[in-house]
């Protein structure tokens, strides 16, 4: 297969034709902030709106997850306009995220912390007001808890959970600001969960977290 040559931040890389720019960058060790990207999903979610990049010849920044690589493409992931949009999106997310790193099991491995570091911005929103929803935590499962207040609605867990029909426990409900990660009829996760706990492994934040002393190996 003929590979496509492109340049990201001065680094020359090769990518398979038809591949999305985000994955070409990530596979070559170039980190672009992202939350909703799922490699084996045929269509990108394009929901988190964080992977903004600037492409030479384009006036406006674009999301790297929706753009296919092209030969000779020159990409700048630190452009001012791209950074401004990424930061704006991130601050919006953080303004509705129950921030409590010190008591969060994801502390240290949380992707929100990683993104804040990359974008050089604070975890606490400075400009926007806090809009928290105070949703109830589901701790019915013996292995893990679901705290929707920490959820960024990236959809990774939903994708994993719905890969097989027998599982399909998690999903999104409601719309607009009320959109929430939940189960059918808001029943406790434990009702149908097969305890594969893949959802916990893919969660970028502490929204789905193992209970103390549990880990994926504990699957019965």
């Amino acid at each position: 297969m003929k590979m496509v040559n492109l340049t990201i931040d001065g680094k020359k890389i090769k990518a398979r034709p038809g591949e999305k720019l985000l994955w070409a960058a990530l596979d070559n060790g170039i980190y672009i902030p992202n939350l909703c990207a799922i490699k084996d999903k045929p269509e990108p979610n394009a929901a988190c709106r964080l992977c903004w990049v600037e492409i030479e010849g384009n006036k406006e920044p674009v999301t790297a997850c929706t753009i296919e690589v092209a030969d000779g493409m020159v990409v700048n992931i630190r452009g001012q306009n791209a950074l401004a949009l990424a930061r704006a999106g991130f601050e919006l997310l953080m303004a509705s995220h129950a921030l409590d790193c010190a008591h969060c099991s994801a502390n240290g491995v949380c992707e929100l912390q990683k993104i804040a570091k990359t974008l050089k911005c604070s975890l606490k929103p400075r400009r926007l007001r806090l809009l928290l929803r105070d949703l109830s935590v589901d701790d019915s499962n013996p292995l893990f808890t679901l705290d929707p207040n920490k959820c960024v609605l990236c959809g990774r867990c939903v994708w994993e959970c719905r890969k097989s029909k027998e599982k399909a426990v998690l999903g999104f409900a409601h719309r607009g600001f009320d959109r929430v990660l939940t189960t059918f009829g808001d029943e406790p996760i434990e009702e149908r969960c097969m305890n594969c706990s893949t959802c916990v492994e893919v969660c970028p934040t502490g929204a789905l977290a193992f209970k103390e002393g549990k880990k994926s190996a504990d699957i019965a």
């Binding site: 929901a47 988190c48 709106r49 919006l92 303004a95 809009l131 999104f172 600001f177 959109r179």
Partner: peptide
């Protein structure tokens, strides 16, 4: 619809 960050929040 609540799918993307900018519109939802």
């Amino acid at each position: 619809c609540g799918k993307c960050t900018f519109c939802r929040l």
